[in-house]
Amino acid sequence: MSVTTVIPANPLVSSYRSVTEALSPLADPLVRVAAGLALVPHGAQKLFGWFGGYGLEATGQFFATKLGVPASFALIAGVIEFGGGILLAAGLATRAVAALVVGLMAVAVVQVHLPAGFFWTDGGYEYPLLWAIVALSYVIRGGGRYSLDALIAR
């Protein structure tokens, strides 16, 4: 597997070149960690009722009555968001976990948010679509140099 060298673009202020060159390798892991950790509380809402969530039973009832999918899908969604978020943040099984997140977010867009339009503030699909695209980038590229996947591969 070849290693790709990222050449940062010229910074807006040329005197910041050394800072941008030093921090550039951290940009991708920063997004991966933030994306993974942003999923965790959503899974905790579904699984445990934390952060104002309803817990597994009530979420399952919502999935069955409002979405027309089996209540067991609440467990699947919660595990992907909670456990998958942790794994994505750590960069472990990155491609597989990111693929599960893409699938989950695609279902969320189509089944839940599409009828409400684009804007997240109106319950639209903007937020889950963004996370699906971010996750898709990790399906394509993997966890990168600063991931547990890379550490295991060494």
Rank of each mutant, 00 (worst) to 15 (best):
W120T: 03
A132N: 06
F48N: 00
A77T: 13
I76M: 14
V33K: 10
P25M: 10
V31D: 01
S72H: 02
L151Q: 12
R32W: 10
L148T: 06
V97H: 08
P115D: 03
T4A: 12
L56Y: 03
A71E: 11
L37D: 04
T59R: 00
E21A: 11
S24F: 08
Y127K: 00
N10S: 10
L30W: 11
A93D: 00
I76G: 07
S2E: 14
L23Y: 06
E21T: 12
A64V: 05
A106M: 14
R141K: 15
P128S: 12
G49D: 01
V40Q: 04
A34H: 12
A108S: 11
A77R: 02
A27I: 11
T5Q: 14
E57K: 08
L37G: 03
V40M: 08
V110Y: 15
G78P: 04
R145N: 15
F62G: 00
P115T: 02
S2T: 15
G36N: 08
P29D: 04
Y16V: 01
L88Q: 05
R95G: 05
L39I: 09
M1V: 13
A34F: 15
F63G: 00
Q111W: 08
G68P: 02
V13P: 00
F73G: 03
I80L: 06
R145T: 15
I140A: 15
V69C: 05
S72M: 09
V97L: 08
M105C: 03
A38Q: 09
A77M: 05
T5Y: 11
R95F: 12
L130M: 15
V79H: 01
R95N: 07
A22G: 02
V97T: 13
G143M: 11
A132K: 04
Q61W: 02
R145G: 13
R154W: 09
L136K: 13
P8K: 01
F63N: 00
T59L: 00
A22R: 09
F119C: 08
A99E: 07
V13M: 03
G83F: 09
V69Q: 05
E81D: 09
G123I: 05
A35N: 04
S14K: 08
G143L: 12
T65K: 13
L148Q: 04
F63S: 01
L148F: 15
G36L: 10
L37W: 07
R95L: 10
G91M: 03
A71G: 14
L56E: 02
G55Y: 05
L47G: 00
T4W: 09
L87G: 01
G60Q: 02
Y127M: 02
A58C: 02
T20R: 00
T59H: 00
L129P: 04
P25Q: 09
A9S: 09
M1K: 12
G117A: 14
I80R: 02
S15W: 10
A93K: 10
R141A: 15
A22W: 06
D122Q: 15
Q45C: 03
A44G: 00
G143R: 09
W50K: 00
A99C: 08
L129H: 09
V6L: 13
F51M: 08
G49Y: 01
T5G: 04
